[in-house]
């Protein structure tokens, strides 16, 4: 074990209500930016959101139609697998339930895919039942590119690598298909309360 650096505490903050912080996590007031690649900058007139794959009929919305869909504003805690948690983050977006309303499928899994090539896999039940949104506002402001704007997936009950930035669509799949980080050893499910960080956890 390394020697202790006198007086070092890191960025962590004490938490008023520890029951909100999953095991192994620290609360941060910051919003760290972690990325696997350059920030995409898709012009809004070229942007669309698509649901396809194992569905009866694919569906797609251009930006203007997308932001005209019924939206919700939610305040949630988010947990990054790198151990920081951020409490009371506010997002505005379209619930994935709304997007899947008229989609017929027997698939049980989805792969969220993004500009720049990022993918992540989730069970369909993890993005439905009021548990996931495609968010285009953060903290009352349009979502900044470095945080995933114009729109990102937000799935607060799972580790935040599942909340794909720059999301452009959901591919419904019959089987669970590991996405980018999952292929490199991260967990297929990613429940922070069970500390499902890596495959096999």
């Amino acid at each position: 074990m390394s020697p202790i650096s006198r007086g070092f505490g890191g960025r962590r903050r004490p938490v008023a209500d520890p029951s909100r912080v999953p095991p192994g996590q620290y609360v941060t007031p910051d919003f760290p930016v972690l990325s696997a690649g350059p920030t995409p900058h898709t012009p809004l007139d070229e942007w669309s959101f698509t649901i396809h794959g194992a569905v009866e009929k694919p569906v797609s919305w251009p930006w203007d139609e997308f932001i005209a869909l019924p939206s919700e504003t939610v305040t949630v805690d988010i947990h990054c697998v790198t151990k920081w948690s951020k409490l009371d983050t506010s997002w505005k977006g379209v619930s994935v339930d709304t997007l899947l309303e008229n989609v017929e499928t027997e698939a049980e899994y989805v792969t969220a895919w993004s500009d720049g090539g990022y993918t992540t896999n989730l069970a369909l039940e993890d993005v439905t039942g009021g548990r996931a949104w495609i968010a285009y506002e953060y903290g009352g402001e349009p979502l900044e590119p470095e945080h995933g704007g114009p729109a990102r997936l937000v799935v607060p009950h799972l580790y935040f690598w599942k909340s794909a930035k720059w999301v452009r669509g959901l591919t419904l799949t019959p089987d669970d298909q590991p996405g980018f980080w999952e292929n490199y050893g991260y967990h297929n499910h990613g429940d922070p309360w069970l500390e499902q960080r890596y495959q096999g956890d």
Binding site: P38, V81, T82
Partner: peptide, 11 residues
Amino acid sequence: VYGQAPGTVAR
């Protein structure tokens, strides 16, 4: 090179 975690990516 991008990022530190969940992992570091070299392109």
